[in-house]
């Protein structure tokens, strides 16, 4: 590949030889898990259980799609769990107080986006690293959520919500849970944005070489703010679904989600240092974790075993990705 004398004409030589290594290895892991779990539990493959998995992973998946953009741009958003918590608080309390369900969902998405814009502004204008900026908002938003319940709403828990919002979280269309349908639609949207638009292309490009993007006239700050806003919007939508699923909300909703979600995104193959991202990998990452969680419950394993497994899997997956990229000569960083 170096010298180029014997190379074919430009433009024509586009076919890269396909290899089995191009398949995301998580797919094999998921297939392996399915075989093992199907043998270990006769309930695992039942349609109701499979649909249950899709319902369980939907909220995580919607947030993880946004996080894939964030991490691909060499950022990170630790505040997703807290954003989810505050949005859930507002959506649940407003519906409980009689606001139209659809308006409340819109309000949740708008609030999430606004929080994302705030994160983006802190990162770009105050030039604070995303890790610190969103660690700050993680803590602050959780505190704000508690304050919201105690001072503005005067109850610690919201419950018994109208049927529409419960349908959003618990309903079915045929055998398919409504949250899974929404998550699938969001996957299509995220996949389109990521692979087919300037928004997606600039996301990975900024993660790869921000200075070059700025030099080429890309509005880097604006793009980053939009990325965090999209992540926030995902949290707002996920909050509405979660409120429906729980038929209520409490101040601790979403606590610890950030680690679960970042683990899934990285597990899927998105590079933590930006430049390379994969929506398909994120879907597989979320599914892997979801299948492990579901399967461990079904076979009656100790709850904490799943965390050990997921942790080990994360390390193995990242080690594999690093090895593969080094072998392709793509790991060098400038």
């Amino acid at each position: 590949m170096r010298a180029g004398e014997t190379l074919p004409a430009p433009g024509r030589a586009t076919a890269r030889t396909w290899s089995i290594g191009d398949i995301n290895p998580l797919l094999f892991i998921i297939i392996g898990l399915y075989i093992v779990l199907a043998l270990a539990s006769d309930r695992f493959l039942a349609v109701t259980n499979q649909m249950n998995i899709t319902r369980q992973v939907s909220v995580y998946l919607i947030i993880a799609l946004g996080q894939t953009f964030v991490i691909s741009s060499r950022g990170i958003d630790l505040s997703v769990g807290s954003t989810l918590g505050l949005c859930a608080a507002v959506v649940a309390t407003q519906i409980s107080d009689g606001l139209n369900v659809w308006l409340a969902i819109g309000l949740g998405i708008a609030l999430g986006s606004l929080i994302g814009v705030g994160n983006g502004l802190i990162i770009t204008k105050l030039q604070i690293s995303p890790l610190i900026a969103t660690l700050g908002t993680l803590v602050a938003l959780r505190g704000a959520t508690h304050l919201y319940y105690t001072h503005l709403y005067a109850h610690e828990v919201v419950s018994r919500l109208p049927r529409d919002i419960v349908y959003l979280g618990q309903g079915f269309v045929g055998p398919v849970p409504v949250p899974a349908i929404i998550a699938a639609a969001m996957c299509v949207l995220a996949w389109y944005l990521f692979h087919y638009t300037r928004f997606g292309s600039y996301t990975t490009s900024i993660g790869s070489n921000e200075a070059a993007c700025a030099l080429a006239g890309v509005h880097v700050d604006r793009q980053k703010i939009l990325i965090y806003a999209f992540q926030g919007a995902c949290c707002g939508l996920a909050a509405a679904i979660l409120v429906g699923r729980l038929n209520g909300a409490s101040p601790d909703v979403g606590t610890g989600y950030e680690l679960h979600i970042i683990a899934a995104v990285v597990l899927g193959g998105t590079a933590l240092f930006g430049g390379i991202g994969t929506m398909w990998g994120t879907v597989l990452g979320i599914l892997t974790i979801g299948v492990i969680e579901n399967g461990m419950v079904l076979i009656g394993a100790d709850f904490h075993l799943q965390r050990v497994l997921i942790g080990i899997l994360l390390i193995v997956a990242v080690a594999y990705q690093g090895w593969r990229r080094r072998r392709q000569g793509t790991a060098e960083r400038t």
């Binding site: 993660g207 070489n209 080429a216």
Partner: peptide, 18 residues
């Protein structure tokens, strides 16, 4: 060279003017 290393040549040539 101000190139984006993870982007292909065509993407780099058209960066900002896609």
């Amino acid at each position: 060279l101000a190139l984006v290393p993870d982007l292909d040549p065509a993407g780099n040539i058209f960066l900002g003017k896609e």
